[in-house]
Design a protein around this nucleic acid. Structure first.
Lengths: 236, 236
DNA sequence: CGAAACCTTGACAATGTTCAATCACTGTGG
DNA sequence: CCACAGTGATTGAACATTGTCAAGGTTTCG
């Protein structure tokens, strides 16, 4: 049964039946409530994590004790691939659920074993990793060249389903403190960025839910410093 | 002859003799002078680029016409893998030599073909890409949590050969405008950051060459906000 | 010598952070 | 049902960092 499940995921769809069977049998599916701990720093280097639905925050602590948010995973995102071929201790992190969360874990050792056996699977992972690399590169670019409100605008645009062109209501997927961390700014800055967008781009919001009247306005606002890649075309 | 050459590179060392032969025969080695154009925006999506020695700047232009430096490649760095499995047009870039440069090009189509045929080769690429992803992640973290002078200090530390613990003279590998862009700041800011470090961390410099008297002082200066990964342990 | 490129410096503006105060919302216990 | 604490969100004011613009210095190279 979980075997059929794995096969439906892009990342595993190419794998051989044998690998699929083996992977499926060592995979553990979990379902936890908001704020539950998913992986601690000791566990993280040994587990590949795949989010089935919900949101998970992945973070670590700096020397000064601040929380550094590395990523926020949503459905079909995953983490832990980096531990497949080397286990850099400093790279370990903590994961907690920021909404009710369904996910599965796979021991890194098993995953590694099957990547070595199954060419198609390794190609899937390669493809996926290359895409992720692309995304990370764009995030870097964004962080150095765009202002806080432009980054927020960009995030909002990515929340809009691709086919919608008219006026939309989007819902923020997680709370604003986390969103601020994910966008590389302080909560206060996020607040002000939101205020600025409301004014300049006709966005009205009552907190959770935002009404975006004119996508074009937003896009134009974002894309003054971007390199063509972010975000107008490439969605996430 | 170039076949033996490829085999010595980490990225290709695992490949089958057959792949090696095929790749070697379609690889073009070039040697160009400083400031030469290596790849333009039209060419870049079709070529895998590997730097043998020297430095290459890879950049694109924003909508507003500014130059966005994506990366600076040095010996054994490479670019273009991202085009293997998808060819996002917006991701195309321009590459120029910022020093005398020796490199080779490989058509992406050929590389792709052999990745599909050669499991060991694809595993090499996967390993490599995962490491690069790790590095990108750290760069992101650095950009949001460290000040301009901390990022500079971090860069300087990475220039010091691993075994040296005493006082060192390091040489900046390329000009300060480019360095500033790579570190995500303006040249003026770099200048001031340099001044600040001279004062606070006992660094004396006559431009190109810098005398670092006390590595520890630098490390301490950098690692107040870093997550343990950057940069004290992981070099590059 | 003179031009060009590169680097530095200063004054000022813009952006983001910090810290503190306030407000709105929620759930709890009396 | 209401006070009340607790959380998250917003706002303002002071501050820090970085960017911008303009000027001047240095080096290199013809």
């Amino acid at each position: 049964m979980p075997e059929i499940f794995l096969k439906k995921l892009d990342l595993f769809s190419g794998a051989s039946p044998k690998s699929l069977a083996a992977l499926s049998s060592s995979l553990q599916t979990h379902e936890v409530k908001k704020n539950a701990l998913v992986l601690n720093a000791q566990q993280s280097p040994h587990h590949f994590l795949y989010v089935i639905n919900g949101w998970a925050k992945i973070f670590k602590e700096s020397a000064a004790g601040e929380e550094i948010v590395l990523d926020v995973l949503s459905a079909h995102d995953h983490a832990g691939e980096a531990f497949i071929f080397e286990a850099p201790e400093q790279a370990s992190y903590t994961v907690i659920a920021v909404s009710n969360l369904k996910f599965f874990l796979l021991p890194v050792s098993i995953l590694k074993e099957h990547l070595m056996l199954d060419h198609a699977l390794s190609l899937s992972f390669l493809t996926n990793t290359l895409k992720k690399q692309q995304t990370l590169g764009m995030a870097l670019e964004q962080l150095s060249f765009q202002s806080a409100s432009q980054r927020l605008a960009c995030f909002l645009l990515k929340l809009i389903p691709a086919e919608v062109t008219a006026c939309v209501v989007v819902e923020l997927p997680y709370d604003k403190n986390l969103l601020a961390a994910r966008l590389g700014m302080r909560p206060e800055t996020l607040s002000r960025a939101m205020a600025k967008l409301s004014q300049e781009c006709h966005i009205s919001g009552d907190g959770e839910r935002l009404l975006i009247e004119d996508q074009q306005k937003l896009k134009h606002y974002v894309c003054q410093h971007c390199s063509g890649a972010v975000p107008c075309s490439a969605k996430s």
